[in-house]
Simulated scan of single mutants.
Amino acid sequence: MPVSVCHGWVEVRTKGFNDIINITPQVRQFVKEKHLKEGQLLIFINGSTAAISTVEYEPGLLQDIPEMMEKIAPMNRRYHHDDTWHDGNGYAHLRSTLTGTSFTVPVIDGQLVLGTWQQIILLDFDNTSRQRRVVLQFVGEME
């Protein structure tokens, strides 16, 4: 079969300040609607204060992740970025850099290959709410 490429988006309104949103249902819907069969699906957030990752989406981790980030890159300290732009979100850029802005997941037999408790998440670290657009790009076989 020839290799195909297709793309789409997941639109998400976030609250900022470590908002963690499970986008797995929207990504699964994309796979279903586009009839994806075998290949690689890239999930990418095109912002420098947000991230894409995977986690067991449960209440304990939804508290643990922001607490961990606050220890690593606290909101209430001075960052050189803030001196440059005066927007107070230097910490958000660092958190995005640490976590990463993309995740690639295999698609096999029309299904995302995720662990039993593994969900795809969007993390918004910025200091304001935003409308985020997550880019989905598939390379592989389609039905």
Rank of each mutant, 00 (worst) to 15 (best):
E56S: 14
E33N: 14
D64S: 13
I108A: 11
I20L: 12
M1R: 11
K37M: 11
Y91L: 09
V135A: 03
R28W: 09
V12L: 06
L114Q: 09
F17Q: 04
Y57D: 08
D124F: 04
V27H: 01
M75F: 09
N46C: 11
L114K: 08
L123S: 10
N46E: 08
G115I: 13
V105S: 05
S4W: 04
M1A: 15
G90C: 10
I120D: 00
H35Y: 13
T54K: 03
M142D: 05
W85C: 11
I52K: 02
N76T: 15
C6I: 04
I20P: 00
W117F: 14
W85L: 13
W9T: 15
I45R: 00
F30P: 01
M69D: 07
T128N: 12
E38R: 06
I120R: 01
I43S: 00
Q119L: 07
N22L: 11
G47I: 00
D83C: 13
T14V: 07
E56K: 12
D124H: 06
V3R: 13
V55Q: 12
I52M: 11
L136M: 10
V135H: 02
I52S: 03
E38W: 08
K32I: 09
E33G: 08
Q137H: 08
T116M: 10
I23Q: 02
P59W: 08
F17P: 00
H86R: 14
T97C: 15
M69L: 15
E58D: 09
A51M: 06
V10Q: 10
A92S: 12
M69P: 03
V10G: 09
H93S: 03
V105Q: 10
V134Y: 07
I52C: 07
E58K: 09
I23K: 05
I20A: 02
E143M: 13
Q131N: 15
D83F: 13
N89H: 11
M75C: 07
E11K: 15
I121S: 02
I108R: 15
R13F: 08
E143S: 14
T116H: 10
H35P: 07
G8H: 00
G47C: 05
P74G: 08
Q29G: 06
M69R: 03
V139R: 05
T54E: 01
L42S: 07
N18D: 12
L112Q: 03
R77A: 06
E67Q: 14
R13A: 12
N76A: 12
V55G: 03
L41F: 03
I121F: 02
I121L: 06
Q137S: 12
R28D: 11
D87L: 03
R13Y: 10
T84R: 12
K71R: 14
G140H: 07
Q118W: 13
L123R: 07
V3A: 15
V113C: 05
P66M: 00
L114D: 08
E33D: 15
H93I: 04
G90T: 10
T14S: 03
M68N: 01
I72G: 03
F103N: 05
R28C: 12
L94Y: 09
E141I: 14
G115Y: 11
I65G: 00
C6Y: 01
V31T: 01
S53R: 04
G16P: 04
D82Y: 05
L62Q: 11
H80G: 11
I52Y: 01
Q40E: 09
